[in-house]
Design a protein around this nucleic acid. Structure first.
Lengths: 224, 224
DNA sequence: CACCCGGCTATACGCTTGTACAGCTCACTA
DNA sequence: TAGTGAGCTGTACAAGCGTATAGCCGGGTG
């Protein structure tokens, strides 16, 4: 696994040992998840001793919390930066928000799937952001073309979870598409696919209605 | 954690010890993932000794492979059953396929995210199934309302990954929605939300086009 | 009856893990 | 110069893991 060794990045050695450890932890948590990542592995990638990891961060869990907090801060910073730099409100707030998340997509998705209390907030904000995004066409005169089955927040939450499915299944996706979707080219292809999907209805209203009727016709099974 | 103890299910004790172990492993892998699940934990939940797990399955990895294969077979069986029982082709093949996957959604999604060679096949089949589903409206006279940015298979693959994001983030989703989405009521709400989302375009064609232009205008960063 | 083989348990081994701690180095300061 | 504390290392330890193995039990078979 090249690139995770110490000294792979030229600017890597200029960082504080503490920052190097945090960065190595970020990479390893992203690649292998929290459980499979070992303190020794992080220390090795950062070019320090395992003891120093504990010296700086106390425990593995505290290290994770620190990385989570760092990601949170970094996304907020990027979001503000993009929000301020978007000339004439070029694209919408939700798009900007998604763009701010992109660099840490994989880590964020994994952390949320594994259950991170620190980043729960971010998920909630993404849902809210998606919610306002979904409200856009409904305010632009496209009102009630088709009635909705559930309220907007529910749709926003499901959409947010679905969007995070892409980085979570990046291995499968890369395999099927024949491109590493973490590479610039692959990422662009996925971005285009997402725009394409968002721009079209995937189902005809008739099919959706018949499916809903079929769903509501079957009785709800009792709780065990 | 109630329900994972031995004897929780009345019909549970009637099973072979081997089947009980397999079932317990399925539950634990689903709930905690492969890494965090221990052989001792599985044995405890199945009401047998840890040694018996090895006796029947050889190793933890082989146990996982067995569970994967079992899931694969079970989904195929359910799929055939539903396909045969669907009167007058009531809903489409893709919907039936999704329905066959549903009982094992959470396990399947987790296994795919963690990298299961056995279930890769199933992911590919889901992509193909989604692909034919996406082809539906295009054949029913709704041809080229809006041109597509990427080919159909790419869209199908991304859609499949997105759909699996729901079970992968079920904890976050349940928290935001205030309902356990693994419960019958919660599952139905999510199903309705999915139908709703699939039935509507999430983005106006104008916004999609401007976003695509903005995307293609920025040069592709060089590979490191 | 003796045999024996599959289901099953108890115990133990070796390894890796997170964690703990004593002590080294070295720039900075009184 | 002597002292001090932060940064950092090496070694060690207890716990938990997957794995291995010797042996118990009971029903089917010659």
């Amino acid at each position: 696994m090249a690139g995770t060794q110490a000294g792979g990045d030229p600017a890597f050695e200029d960082l504080t040992a503490r920052a190097r450890i945090r960065q190595a932890a970020l990479a390893q948590f992203t690649a292998h998840g929290f459980e499979r990542t070992t303190i020794r592995g992080i220390a090795g990638a950062a070019g320090v001793s395992p003891g120093l990891v504990r010296h700086h961060f106390g425990s593995k869990q505290e290290l994770r919390d620190t990385v989570d907090a760092h990601i949170l801060k970094e996304i907020r910073r990027l979001s503000d930066l993009l929000m301020a730099g978007s000339r004439r409100g070029e694209l919408d707030a939700a798009v900007v928000s998604r763009e701010a998340v992109r660099p840490f997509q994989a880590y964020l998705a994994r952390a949320l799937a594994e259950g991170s209390t620190t980043l729960e907030t971010l998920f909630d904000e993404m849902v809210t952001s998606t919610e306002t995004f979904l409200a856009l066409p409904e305010e632009n005169g496209h009102a009630d073309e088709e009635p909705h089955f559930v309220d907007r927040r529910t749709r926003a939450a499901v959409c947010t979870a679905m969007a995070l499915g892409v980085p979570l299944l990046q291995a499968q996706l890369s395999r099927v598409l024949g491109v590493d979707i973490t590479s610039p080219a692959g990422d662009r292809q996925v971005a285009l696919a997402l725009l394409d999907i968002y721009a079209h209805a995937l189902m005809s209203p008739e099919l959706a209605h018949s499916a809903r009727d079929a769903l509501l016709a079957t009785p709800l099974p009792a709780e065990p």
